[in-house]
Amino acid sequence: MQLYNTLSAKERAALIKEAGQERLTISFYKYAHIGNPAIFRNHLFLHWNELDVLGRIYVAHEGINAQLSVPAENFEAFKKHLDSISFLENVRLNIAIEQDNLSFLKLKVKVRRKIVADGLNDSAFDVTNKGVHVNAEQFNELIEDPDTVLVDMRNHYESEIGHFKNAITPDVDTFRDSLDIIENDLADHKEDKKLVMYCTGGIRCEKASAYYKYKGFKQVYQLEGGIIEYTRQVNAKKLENKFVGKNFVFDHRRSERISDDVIAQCHQCGQPCDTHVNCANEACHLLFIQCEECARKMDNCCSDSCKEIHALPYEEQKALRKGKTASNKIFKKGRSEVLKFKK
């Protein structure tokens, strides 16, 4: 019974290109009680592997968080399988605004303690006592209200390339960092202001809204389906788009263009740019914003030292990395002293 990937990302990409079939990039989440996440994980892997589903899926006792791609011709079979799972029947699927057949190159279904690392003690408050969900039209009306405080629940590298007009964008590295900062900054407005939150697909706001109600905020709202669903509704209903720039996404595309505005700058030269890349030096892998000119000049690296290492033969690069622990700490997102124009 195969419960793991047998192809490398490079091999999978070649097969996708050879097949020439369109794929759909999809995300969804659902909070629900899962008795045995490991068994559920294996169940999903077996069924989705047969449908050529690729992606990153987290399963925990509290539910599921999924970002994936599926061949368009297998979508109905995939949806049928979702509907056969009681708590996933008719779950809202966020379809990507910009499709890319190579958005995911492996199927990774992982068991985690939580489906979002929020650092919260869920037993301390009622996680089902959530904020009011609003659609795109309601959201547009709410954020024009002078009694509304609009908060971006994403991290600094996400909001840097795109956000809603007049939103508070906390300068944080993780979701858990933002929770206390926002509460402290808005402590004087728990009674008189409407707290309106948004994130990429809605999952971070789902838990945060219940947390802020527990913390005493009286009027809590969240954008249903996040930026992805907001954009779909804006396009479908011809509503005014109040989002500027790009929406950061967690796959090989890295972002979706929502408006023509470029609100960020190249971290190396300061020119207008909103294209995220990873440093080509695999021992660094720093996520940062780099324009095409700097990419050519720096050989897709973040610094001169990384450029020198990247120029070495691959075996020498491997030898330099040998014996060094590759923890998550090396995969920093947009923060480094070598980035002269990082805001």
Score class of each variant (00 low, 15 high):
Lys80Ala: 15
Leu93Asn: 07
Val109Gln: 10
Asp122Ala: 10
Val109Arg: 04
Asp147Ser: 11
Ser103His: 09
Ile85Glu: 06
Leu120Asn: 08
Phe139Gln: 03
Lys130Val: 12
Thr128Ser: 15
Gln138Ala: 13
Arg113Lys: 14
Leu142Pro: 11
Met153Ala: 11
Asn140Arg: 02
Val151Arg: 01
Ser84Ala: 13
Asn135Thr: 09
Leu105Asp: 11
His81Gly: 02
Asn129Phe: 13
Ile85Gly: 10
Leu93Ala: 06
His81Ala: 00
Lys106Glu: 14
Pro146Gly: 01
Pro146Met: 04
Val134Met: 07
Val111Met: 12
Phe87Trp: 00
Gln138Thr: 03
Ser123Trp: 00
Asn121Pro: 00
Met153His: 07
Glu89Ala: 11
Gln99Ile: 07
Asp145His: 10
Arg113Leu: 12
Glu98Gln: 15
Asn129Ala: 14
Asn135Arg: 01
Ile143Glu: 12
Leu142Ser: 05
Arg113Cys: 05
Arg113Asn: 14
Gly131Ile: 01
Ala124Gln: 13
Val134Gly: 08
Ile143Lys: 09
Phe78Lys: 01
Val109Ile: 15
Glu137Gln: 13
Asp152Glu: 01
Glu137Tyr: 04
Glu137Met: 08
Lys79Leu: 10
His133Thr: 00
Asp83Gly: 00
Asp83Ile: 02
Asp122His: 14
Arg92Trp: 00
Lys106Trp: 06
Lys106Gln: 15
Asn121Glu: 11
Ala117Tyr: 00
Asp145Arg: 12
Asp100Asn: 15
Ala124Phe: 01
Asp122Gln: 13
Val134Leu: 03
Leu82Ala: 04
Lys114Met: 13
Lys108Gly: 06
Asn90Asp: 15
Asn121Cys: 10
Val109Tyr: 10
Gln99Met: 07
Asp152Pro: 07
Pro146Thr: 01
Ala136Arg: 00
Leu88Ala: 04
Gly119Pro: 02
Asp122Phe: 15
Thr148Ile: 06
Asn121Thr: 11
Asp147Arg: 11
Leu107Ser: 05
Lys110Leu: 09
Thr148Lys: 08
Lys114Tyr: 14
Asn121Ser: 09
Ser84Phe: 04
Asp118Val: 02
Arg112Asn: 12
Leu93Asp: 11
Asn101His: 09
Ile115Ser: 08
Ala77Gly: 00
Gln138Lys: 08
Leu120Ala: 02
Glu89Gly: 01
Asp126Cys: 06
Lys80Cys: 07
Leu93Cys: 09
Phe125Tyr: 14
Asp118Arg: 03
Glu98Ala: 13
Lys130Pro: 01
Asn140His: 05
Glu137His: 06
Ala77Trp: 00
Lys106Ser: 15
Phe125Lys: 04
Phe139Leu: 04
Lys130Met: 08
Asp145Lys: 11
Val91His: 08
Met153Ser: 11
Ala117His: 10
Ile143Asp: 09
Asp122Tyr: 14
Leu105Gln: 12
Lys79Phe: 08
Val151Glu: 02
